[in-house]
């Protein structure tokens, strides 16, 4: 009985050693940007799934180039760019002036690329007669100043406000761009009785069922059985529904660009990768994942 045992242990030991060696290789190559066949890509958690899908698809195009993608947040990615440890930083916001200065102090001049766009759709129950809202009305609804649908042209029903949890980037974007209307001095908060649901699916399920509910979500998460609200920046209009076209021509007001930054004017494999990302094949992946492709 004990005879077959040693080989198994042996095999296990070899696997362990191999695993250690391999993981060692991976981390050392990820740290170096001088390696000719690797692109290191890090940053925004909003973009991380998209960046992973791109990296996977690009492997079919150029099998010899390997791309390592990690999240961590826009700030983390840009910090890594400033320190020269990544080739491309992903960000769901533009680089800040102080970050640009820090990069220039380190001898870099970052170049910005808009790689995709992201629209936030406002959704209500199909039975709700309200068709359109302004950013100001949305701000008043979510901060608790308006609490009945009749005040915005609907039936006499209480408004039930749905939001993602506070750790969601979409929550923060909605707070800054809708509740505070982009004003960094504004200290408006979500009303405490806003329901914070742990998932997009939770929001869609409640909106589908409840005629009192209003919710917001990335355009890619909207299902056909809820009603999308047309949004305008001002009461005079125009009220616009979110779509690829209205996001790209700037008419839909709750949309943001998603960026990639390179440390300097890109060359070689990085330039090739960026050109591919802006091309039709990669932009089709953008729509598949529910983001809006860039117009170019």
């Amino acid at each position: 009985m004990p005879a077959p045992r040693p080989p198994t242990q042996h095999g296990l030991a070899i696997a362990l050693v191999l695993g250690l060696l391999l993981s060692g290789c991976k981390s050392s190559s990820a740290d170096s940007t001088t390696d000719g066949q690797t692109i290191v890509n890090k940053g925004s958690d909003t973009i991380v799934n998209l960046a992973l899908a791109w990296a996977e698809a690009y492997h079919q195009v150029e099998p010899q180039v390997s791309i390592s993608v990690t999240g961590g947040g826009s700030g983390t990615g840009i910090a890594a760019l400033i320190n020269g440890t990544v080739d491309l930083a992903n960000a769901s916001r533009q680089i800040k002036p102080e970050e640009l200065q820090a990069a220039q102090a380190n001898g870099f001049s970052p170049v910005e690329f808009v790689v995709a766009r992201d629209a936030i759709a406002i959704i209500v129950n199909p039975d709700n007669p309200v068709e359109q809202l302004t950013i100001g009305q949305l701000s008043d609804i979510y901060s608790g100043k308006i609490f009945n649908w009749s005040e915005v042209g609907g039936e006499d029903r209480p408004i039930v406000k749905l939001s993602r949890e506070t750790n969601s980037g979409t929550h923060v974007y909605f707070l800054e761009q809708v509740l505070r209307r982009g004003d960094s001095e504004d200290k408006t908060l979500f009303s405490p009785d806003t329901l914070l649901l742990p998932s997009s699916e939770g929001i869609t399920a409640e909106v589908r069922d409840n005629p009192n509910a209003i919710g917001y979500d990335g355009l890619g998460y909207v299902t056909p059985d809820v009603k999308v609200i047309a949004v305008a920046a001002e009461l005079s209009g125009p009220f616009v529904l979110p779509s690829g076209t209205t996001v790209n021509n700037g008419q839909y007001p709750i949309a943001r660009d998603l960026y990639m930054y390179s440390a300097d004017q890109p060359t070689g494999r990085v330039l090739k990768y960026l050109n591919w990302i802006l091309g039709p094949e990669a932009q089709r992946i953008v729509s598949e994942l529910g983001f809006v492709p860039t117009s170019s």
Partner: peptide, 28 residues
């Protein structure tokens, strides 16, 4: 429960959304 952090004021709060300690830890 809807996870809205509203301070309960009485038994009427039973019919409104609320947020518990456990759900807060799990969500955040």
């Amino acid at each position: 429960t809807g996870n809205a952090p509203v301070l309960p004021t009485g038994l009427g709060s039973l019919f409104r959304p609320t947020r518990t300690m456990t759900a807060t830890i799990a969500a955040e």
